[in-house]
């Protein structure tokens, strides 16, 4: 190892010059990396073993924060299943919605740019505004949804105010805002070589076969990418649930990011929040690893030989 490292360090004058130039160019990232990632990672690991309220200096308490989370904290026991429900169901549903919309747009239709713009539209609206609009639309007394139901003399639905419906409602709003992935999928679908479809047609495949055996395999790397980033961001989702339900009703939408934020900035439990953050980090790494591992046989890379 040392020999290898030394050999690597034995650089020619030109290499050394290029190394310096390269480092100079990436120095903004390098400084940011050290200041806002490396140091905070280590510091947060240290804080996770302490009790720290920002006012008094941190007190080392060993594994207490972690033990507390898994054995004593009554909220954490709710937050974990909440988050897995929301992310585990919401992300695949959003990705599926985006993919089906893209497939629909990729057929031979007139006015594709218009429909694409419409489906993409909710994705650019600020999350704050989305929260306001849906809170109003779904209001049990005078929201448009329930007003329509009432006009039809049907029973009103407590979308956001019933613990059973709050999570599915948030998931549906997420599906409504899946325009980014749709655009990504549409770009991918337009790259599927036509020969593949033609060859499949010659072999006697119908539209459904072609979709299943040509379209899906060709798009599988992008589907995997979207799923992985969707899971990573899903675990960190904050603004929409924070403003729409505030974690309620009865903690039904108290997701990981909300609970962590509350601990850090409402209760000033920086140590416990750091412990929660590290648990989340481990969850995300494990999740990503499992997803890549289990999908390696399902995902098809066109240029795998390169």
């Amino acid at each position: 190892m040392t020999v290898l490292a030394l050999k690597r360090l034995r650089l020619t004058a030109s290499e050394r010059r290029r190394l310096l130039t390269g480092l100079l160019f990436i120095s903004p990232w390098l400084i940011g990396f050290l200041a806002w990632i490396v140091y905070p990672l280590l510091a947060s690991l240290y804080y996770s073993f302490t009790r720290y309220d920002l006012i008094r200096p941190p007190v080392f308490i060993g594994l207490d924060n972690y033990i507390d989370l898994f054995t004593r904290d009554p909220h954490f026991r709710v937050v974990i299943p909440n988050t897995f429900y929301y992310v585990g169901l919401g992300t695949p549903l959003s990705v599926a919605t985006a993919f089906l919309l893209a497939t629909l747009l990729n057929t031979h239709i007139h006015g594709r740019p218009v429909f694409r713009a419409i489906f993409f539209f909710p994705a650019i609206v600020p999350a704050t505004v989305i929260a306001m609009v849906w809170k109003y639309l779904l209001n049990p007394q005078f929201g448009a949804f329930n007003a329509v139901l009432r006009a039809l003399q049907w029973r009103t639905i407590p979308f956001l105010t019933s613990p059973a419906l709050a999570k599915p409602t948030l998931i549906a709003i997420g599906m409504w805002g899946s325009g980014y992935s749709m655009v990504l999928f549409l770009a991918t679908l337009q790259n599927v070589p036509r020969e593949l479809y033609e060859a499949a047609t010659v072999d006697g495949a119908n539209a459904l076969h072609r979709f299943w055996h040509v379209t899906i395999p060709f798009c599988s790397p992008v589907i995997l990418f979207t799923l992985v980033t969707g899971f990573i961001y899903g675990f960190q989702d904050f603004t929409l649930p924070w403003l729409l339900t505030g974690g309620g009703p009865n903690e039904a939408t108290e997701f990981y990011a909300l609970h962590l934020f509350r601990n850090a900035f409402r209760f000033l439990r920086m140590g416990k929040a750091s412990a929660m953050a590290w648990v989340l980090f481990v969850i995300i790494v494990v999740f990503t690893f499992i997803l890549f591992r289990s999908s390696s046989r399902l995902v098809y890379y066109a240029d795998a030989g390169e």
């Binding site: 905070p40 960190q236 953050a277 990503t288």
Partner: peptide, 22 residues
């Protein structure tokens, strides 16, 4: 390494970064 940092949730660095700025 730069690409790998994308996997780190913002919550992990949130507290120390807040303390730095404070």
């Amino acid at each position: 390494i730069c690409l790998m940092t994308m996997m780190i949730p913002w919550q992990v660095t949130m507290v120390p970064v807040f303390i730095i700025f404070k």
